[in-house]
Write a protein that binds this DNA or RNA. Sequence first.
DNA 1: ATCTGGGAGTAAGACGTTTTAATCCGATCC
DNA 2: GGATCGGATTAAAACGTCTTACTCCCAGAT
Lengths: 345, 345
Amino acid sequence: MGTVSIREVAARAGVSPGTISNVLNRPERVAPETRERVLRAIRELGFVRHGSASTLRAGQSRTIGLSVIDIGNPFFTDVAAGVEEAASELGYAVIFGNSAGARDKEERNLLVFAEQRVRGVLITPSDDDRARLDALRERGIGVVLVDHPAHRPDECSVAVNDFAGGQMAIGHLLSLGARRIGYVSGPRSIRQCAERGRGAERAVAAAGLDPETAIEVVEAPVMTAREGQRAAASLLASGLPDAVFCANDLLAVGFLRELLRAGVRVPGDVALIGYDDIDFAAASAVSLSSIRQPTHRLGRIATELLLDECDHPETHVHQQVMFQPELVVRESTAGRAQAAEREGA
Amino acid sequence: MGTVSIREVAARAGVSPGTISNVLNRPERVAPETRERVLRAIRELGFVRHGSASTLRAGQSRTIGLSVIDIGNPFFTDVAAGVEEAASELGYAVIFGNSAGARDKEERNLLVFAEQRVRGVLITPSDDDRARLDALRERGIGVVLVDHPAHRPDECSVAVNDFAGGQMAIGHLLSLGARRIGYVSGPRSIRQCAERGRGAERAVAAAGLDPETAIEVVEAPVMTAREGQRAAASLLASGLPDAVFCANDLLAVGFLRELLRAGVRVPGDVALIGYDDIDFAAASAVSLSSIRQPTHRLGRIATELLLDECDHPETHVHQQVMFQPELVVRESTAGRAQAAEREGA
DNA sequence: ATCTGGGAGTAAGACGTTTTAATCCGATCC
DNA sequence: GGATCGGATTAAAACGTCTTACTCCCAGAT
């Protein structure tokens, strides 16, 4: 087999196996010319360290696990890209699992992570059951929650303030003069959707309106463009509000399309705002206002927190990072003047 | 530490460690009631097999590596989802790396895979250098090319016929009566773009036209919606063709947007077709015709081929799977009658 | 009664690395 | 010149699992 061990490298360089290990892990303890000789031998023999042997003996690996709810969703894709980037820079490999929102698949992912003795786990939990995560921690595996604020002070989390995002979206629509507002939500069982909805209600109340009457909620079973279209159709039938807030951009894109096809002008007749600010938001027929989340950074920070927790447990302080989302105004909610200005540009 | 070894399970169940290993790996060799006793002990102690120890001793792991060019691209995301799904079903974990098209990052990914002693590697190579892949094979690590046809009979690959896709797209535009056609390409250095372009030329030639004059090529430096808009602006200035083929849907979406904003009717004035059939294709202002690729299946099949190669090297026959893409006609190229019919629906 | 065969389980030695304690050796100090 | 020190290196024992060869024991055949 083409598999070269540390022992053969040692023989070639005329030193003991322990020295090879030192060159690999604490090069400063090895005399420069010995080190050089060893590195040459490594190169010549094409030696690659056996990660499993290393993990076994050292008791800790250089891998982390990432379990997300839906890799097909651009939001999670961006997060994953951030994770991969940061992990790779810090010398860690990423084992990746898609839970698809299914509890048992999530559990399988965690089992695989435990078997691989990953250093830590990044997870967007699909429910509020923390027993499994605590079980991991007892095994010495760090856990950081992603896009899910921690309830407890003894765990790290990185999330974006969905409540504020909801407020922000509705505040913007109100500032345009809207008084009757539609909220196209995903399943309320999804924490993010519920939070955004609560934020929306708060904003309406703060403006002195009654949330019960000012907001009309449509709950879509899944957050896809198709469901957005369907929601639009149903609102078209029952009477359109002044403005609409969709719980994500996929819904908003579908919603927009149905409006345009029905001859409704956006933002003239109805103002529309989405959530996530995915790439397509800027590219749709009427460019879409949205609430931007720092997705890539979310992934990066989560990874850095996790590895800090793992590598420096004594100095590490648990943090519940909460990013603020950001309003991005485009044509779908631009005032007439702004719209005209943009058309000209 | 919360780490329970096979030995403690053995003590609890009153058997030897070897028997635990047998229960885990060849349960049929163990008497039913002993097996039951062992499984109970495993449950009670919360034992989780140490994957690294297992890999070290057995000489082979239950992980595969996946290196893609751009995880932000929905095409690769879908492929990755297919890979994860298949691997998970077959009991394998996926280590994931994003090469971002950079040679050195790709190399780093492969090094990590080699250190982890992955069973095999799925890779969309960013260039044609096969030396590194052959080096992996010499180490006993299987390799399957993804979205890249193999040049040699001794390796597996899974790809989609880009040449045929280009032909198909242009054939469709020609059948609508188009005679001057624009091709908005990505960088020609990307194999897929070049192939689709070659297919386009062939289709034009087959129709008795001169590719040189019938096709106007615009080469975008990156394949984003923004670049699509820019390409549209430049064609608007220099005179629009009858129909346009974009090398992917991101370009097409941007292109479409710019046309609509300029008051050009689609498909009335210009017919437009994209490539990939991403979710948004159906949801854009004028729903977009496109060339669909079986992305998810691409990932699945690649994984299955890889694991077949790894698990049954003696019976495995190398395959170069070439999927055929599929034309999806929507409004952006629909004939007037079809368009009217769809509006009604 | 002895032998044979086979099913069930065990003992012990790898796998390749890391790490601890020990060794070696030349330089420095008194 | 002997003792001491400290840097560089080594020997050897782990880490947890799998696997090979072996033992044990009982059922069935002779």
